[in-house]
Simulated scan of single mutants.
Amino acid sequence: MAKIIGSPSRYVQGAGELSHLREHVALLGKNLFILTSPSGRGRVEGKIAKSLEGSDAKAVYEVFNGECCMTEINRIKAAFDASGCDLIVGIGGGKIHDTAKAAAYYSKVPVVIVPTIASTDAPCSALSVIYTDDGVFEKYLFLPANPNMVLVDTEIVAAAPARLLVSGMGDALATYFEARACRDSNAGNCVGGTITLAAMQLARLCYETLLSDGLKAKLAVERKVCTKAVENIIEANTYLSGVGFESGGLAGAHAIHNGLTALPATHAFYHGEKVAFGTLVQLVLENASTEELAEVLDFCATVGLPTTLADLDIADATEEQLMEVAKLACADGDTLHNMPFPVTPEGVYAAIVAADQLGCQYK
């Protein structure tokens, strides 16, 4: 199998860059169909209006209904087709990004992703995670190309709640460990090949950046300021993790996340928060060294990521419920089978319980 690395055609990051949106996308399209939330629109509309000044380009806004499901994707596609626009811009968080990417794919038009938060690594990927209308994981939609552009205005991202940046760190935390597992098993990545040296190094750099700058970035964002550490973490959460997971591959951590969606109580938690606990479960499955487990537990505790079932409000989950999580994580076609050894629901259940105990012991 060939080694393949994928990435967005262009990645733009800097303070105030959304005010230059029209200039950045000029070669992709003229009229912007903007998918965002009502609150997201309030945060970005002024900058977008400024970027359109002096042109005859238009912006058409569409409100996202909250779930990246086929019902919503089909609704957005229909709205875009009726809008007279030629470019989809997804502005917001991960589910908006994934919905915008999927709608652009089905409408056969370019897509630009503008994160207003750095809570997931979804912006850069040629992938949409599809859920049911009720928020339970359904499938991965692998797209033929990455977004045409990812534009990150760090002024906007730094002003978002710190918990969102920390959630992004949880998502990024899995990148190196899942890439390592896929490398060891020679499993395929998300772009139809195996991992390159470049992708492995991006994944490792992602992890090292989290350890060096994660706490500093959290503390800065809590005071609504953008420091060099914040810039570094935004890049780690968005680009290093995005290219790293897609070109490195997914394994245990994200499969555990998918399994956790079977428990309604976990729906109140962000994607990256559940992935962080999934990373601990994957490390237990691998029988990782005490030193590595301690490093990950220490990082999670320092920035405020979940390390126990109680942290996800499922301390009272029954054995039967946790077995359902394990069975969903082991579903045919999910990424747990990219681990470099066979996995079973029974083994995953045991790893979940053991990871929870490790977290409790650490606390």
Rank of each mutant, 00 (worst) to 15 (best):
A59D: 09
T194C: 08
A100G: 10
R183K: 15
E45V: 06
F299H: 04
E62D: 10
P345C: 00
S128K: 05
N287Y: 03
A179K: 00
L205M: 15
C69H: 04
L260K: 10
K224H: 13
D134S: 15
T307V: 14
K77N: 06
G278F: 05
E320N: 06
K95Q: 15
D316G: 01
T196H: 00
C360D: 02
M149I: 05
G272R: 05
L280G: 12
L151I: 15
T308Y: 07
D311K: 02
A104W: 07
Q282G: 07
E67Y: 05
L250V: 02
E286G: 05
G192T: 11
S185I: 07
F177A: 03
K30M: 01
D171I: 10
G304L: 05
I48K: 00
V109Y: 03
P340F: 10
G46K: 10
A160K: 07
A199F: 04
A100W: 04
V109M: 00
L336M: 15
A350T: 14
T279N: 05
H254G: 10
D171K: 02
S128G: 07
S125G: 12
S185G: 13
A310S: 14
T307A: 13
V230H: 03
T196N: 07
Y106P: 04
D153C: 11
E246L: 01
T335C: 09
I96Y: 09
P110N: 11
A198D: 08
E346D: 14
K95P: 10
S7N: 08
I130Q: 01
D171L: 10
D86F: 03
P161V: 01
K363H: 12
D332P: 02
T318R: 08
P147Q: 03
F33G: 07
L215P: 03
A265H: 00
K139Y: 08
R22N: 12
H271P: 08
E62V: 14
A145P: 01
D86H: 05
T266V: 10
L240R: 07
P38M: 08
A355R: 01
T99M: 09
T290M: 08
S83G: 10
G16M: 06
L211E: 11
M323Q: 14
V152K: 09
D56T: 15
V191D: 03
C182Q: 00
I96C: 10
V157S: 05
K216D: 13
E235A: 12
H337G: 11
G135C: 07
A310K: 06
H337V: 13
I233T: 03
C85G: 00
A236H: 01
L283I: 10
V129R: 00
I4T: 14
A220Y: 03
G242T: 06
S185N: 15
S51W: 12
H267W: 09
E235G: 09
A162R: 11
V221H: 06
G249V: 08
L165H: 00
C85I: 01
I233V: 04
G249P: 01
I91Y: 03
T335E: 03
I156G: 09
G259I: 13
A317V: 10
D86P: 05
A265L: 04
